[in-house]
Every structure is written in C-alpha cells, then in structure tokens.
C-alpha cells in the first residue's frame, strides 16, 4: 500500500501517457481506417465506384495484416518505422505501430458498418441527381454514423489493450507501469490499481460511446 502511495505520481504520469498514446493512435488509426474502409466499401462490385482491382488489392492487404497478433506485429513493423525515419522504440514508435495495426482493424469495422446502409437509400440519393461523392459523404456516412460510433468505441478498447502491450517496447503508459512496478516487483496491489484505473477508463469511454450513438440514432 505504501508502494502505491509512493508510486502515485509516477502512475498518473503513466496514465497520461496511455491517454496520449490511445488518443493519438485512435486519431491516426481512425483516419487510416476510414480511408481503408471507405475504399473497400466504395470499390466493392455494385457499389458507388466499383473497381475489382483496387477492391481486391485493399482486401488482400487488410486480410494479411489484420490477423497478426499485436505482440508479433510490433517487431515486424520496426524496419518499416526505421525506413520512414521513426525511432523504432519508445512512444513515437508505439503510436506508429498502434495506428497502423488499428487502421486495418478499423478499416474492416468501417466497411461493415457502411454496408448496413440500404442500397435503396443510395439509389434515392442518386435519383435526386446527387454525385457519387456527395452520396458517399452526405448520405452513406451519416446513415451509418450510429454503428460507426459504436465501432470506434469498440476500437478504443482494443487500442487500450494494444497500448499496454506496447509498454513492452518502452512505449510507456499504464501497461508499462504495471509491468515494471507491479509484475516485475511482485506487487499485485500496484498491478490491480493499474487494472482498476484502466477498467474505469474503458467503462467511461464505452458509456460515452453508447450515449453518443444513441443520440445519433435517436433510440
């Protein structure tokens, strides 16, 4: 217990890092996911911009990278990070790796959510004389917004998980803290404290996500 009090400032620092890590990778990974998912949706046969080549290519890329366990994904993308001029350890690399991995996962989520929009609604937009681009941004995405928000909430939780794993490569954050002061020093109270704070964070975000989605979907 004394340890916990002694470690409190360190812990909050680590928690701040986690928030930063998760927030930035949700931003980049979310944008990447929107692009990939949007591309998959729009180029699919019979969709707004059917293109078998682009669809097949993106589909295969996503299928290859998405299932790789994050613990293996991390070292695997180190060379890529180096070649892009990113230091292959620490917080910067963690954000890079999480964003990349998240892009693939979120890409699929986005694709699936966009597919829930009924083709009839898209036809109605096109029948009104709207361009395909306008249909995509003013009809398809708003129509899928509720499920998209829930999807991003789900992704957030997965990102918290990834950020903890990233602690292994010195990515900092609560995960790193729990490993260093809880697990390695055989101090379960510290580990549980870290776990507890993470649970509260995830609950809060999930609650907010549900609330926002409900507001958007009005039910």
């Amino acid at each position: 217990m004394d340890d916990l009090i002694r470690l409190t400032p360190l812990f909050w620092e680590a928690f701040g890092q986690t928030l930063q890590l998760v927030w930035l990778s949700l931003l980049f990974g979310g944008l990447g996911g929107l692009v990939l998912g949007g591309l998959l949706y729009a180029t699919r046969p019979g969709s707004l911009y059917p293109n078998a080549f682009v669809y097949g290519l993106v589909n295969v890329i996503v299928n290859i990278f998405r299932p790789i366990p994050f613990l293996i994904f991390l070292p695997a993308v180190q060379p890529l990070a180096r070649s892009l001029g990113i230091v292959a350890i620490g917080t910067g690399f963690a954000i890079f790796a999480i964003s990349l991995a998240a892009s693939f996962a979120i890409g699929r989520l986005v694709e699936q959510n966009l597919l829930t929009v009924s083709p009839g609604v898209i036809e109605a937009s096109r029948a009104a004389g709207a361009s395909r681009l306008r249909t995509m941004f003013q009809i398809v995405i708003p129509e899928a917004l509720g499920p998209l928000i829930l999807g991003f909430t789900f992704a957030f939780v997965a990102l918290v998980d990834m950020s903890a794993v990233a602690g292994y490569i010195g990515g900092g954050g609560t995960g790193n803290f729990a490993i260093q002061y809880g697990m390695r020093q055989f101090n379960p109270v510290v580990t549980w404290a870290a776990v507890f704070v993470i649970i509260v964070l995830v609950q809060l975000v999930q609650f907010f996500g549900n609330w926002l989605a409900r507001k958007v979907m009005r039910r």
Binding site: S118, G120, V121, E123, A124, S125, R126, A127, A128, G129, A130, R134, Q138, I139, P142, E143, L145, V216
Partner: peptide
C-alpha cells in the same frame, strides 16, 4: 435525374435526416 422524381416501395427515406432534411436534399443537390 434531377428533372425526374422517383418514389419507392420501401420509401428509401434518409433516416439520419429529418422530414424537412429529406425534402431539402434534392434542392441542395440542385
């Protein structure tokens, strides 16, 4: 298309828009 109106069996209204927003859309497009 803008000069031809179309209605559907399943109505195909934009659920994310209000009634006003639905009627407004073709005008916005035009």
């Amino acid at each position: 298309r803008s000069g031809i109106g179309m209605i559907f069996q399943q109505f195909n209204l934009f659920n994310a828009k209000t009634v006003r927003g639905n009627i407004d859309y073709p005008l916005l497009v035009a």
